[in-house]
C-alpha cells in the first residue's frame, strides 16, 4: 500500500502540473491578440516582442504540459516549466513593485482579473510542484 501511494503521488503531481500548463496554454493559443495585450500590460517588452511572446509562449507551455502528462522527457519539460515559473514570478514582482494595476494574464486572457500577488503565490506553488517532480524524476532515474 505504501509503495502504491509513494508511486502514485509523483505521477499525480506530474500529471497535475502538466494539465495546469495545458489548461493555461489553450485559451492563449485561441486568442493571441488578447494575450499580447496582457503581455504588453507588464510594460517590460517592446510592442512587437509582446506579440512574439504571445505567439511562442503558449506553445512552449502546451509542449511541456504534454511531455509531463505523457511521461516523455520529463526532466527537460519540468526544467522549462520551472524556468517559466521563475520568469513569471519576476515579471509579476516587477509589476507589483511598479504599482501596475493589471491582470496577470496567466490563464484565460479575457477571464476575471487576477491580482499579481495572487498569481505570484500560485506560481510559487507551481514552482514547488516542479521541484517535487524533478526530485522524483531523479530518484526514479537512479
Amino acid at each position: 500500500m505504501k509503495s502504491f501511494r509513494s508511486s502514485m503521488i509523483p505521477l499525480a503531481l506530474r500529471i497535475a502540473l502538466g494539465a495546469v500548463f495545458i489548461y493555461a496554454a489553450i485559451p492563449k493559443i485561441a486568442d493571441p491578440v488578447t494575450f499580447a495585450g496582457s503581455v504588453a500590460a507588464y510594460q517590460i517588452l517592446p510592442y512587437f516582442w509582446s506579440y512574439v511572446t504571445a505567439a511562442v509562449l503558449p506553445f512552449l507551455e502546451l509542449t511541456c504540459g504534454l511531455l509531463l502528462i505523457l511521461g516523455v522527457r520529463v526532466r527537460s519539460g519540468a526544467l522549462i516549466i520551472g524556468a517559466l515559473n521563475v520568469v513569471f514570478m519576476a515579471a509579476l514582482s516587477a509589476a507589483m513593485i511598479r504599482g501596475l494595476d493589471i491582470d496577470c494574464g496567466c490563464f484565460r486572457p479575457d477571464g476575471p482579473k487576477t491580482a499579481p500577488w495572487v498569481a505570484l503565490v500560485r506560481d510559487a506553488f507551481f514552482l514547488a510542484m516542479t521541484a517535487s517532480v524533478l526530485r522524483y524524476e531523479r530518484v526514479r532515474a537512479r
Binding site: 506553445f59 509542449t63 522527457r73 522549462i80
Partner: peptide, 10 residues
C-alpha cells in the same frame, strides 16, 4: 523543445 515550440508558434 524551445526551438520547436518557437518555430511552431511563429
Amino acid at each position: 523543445i524551445v526551438f520547436a515550440s518557437a518555430l511552431f508558434g511563429i
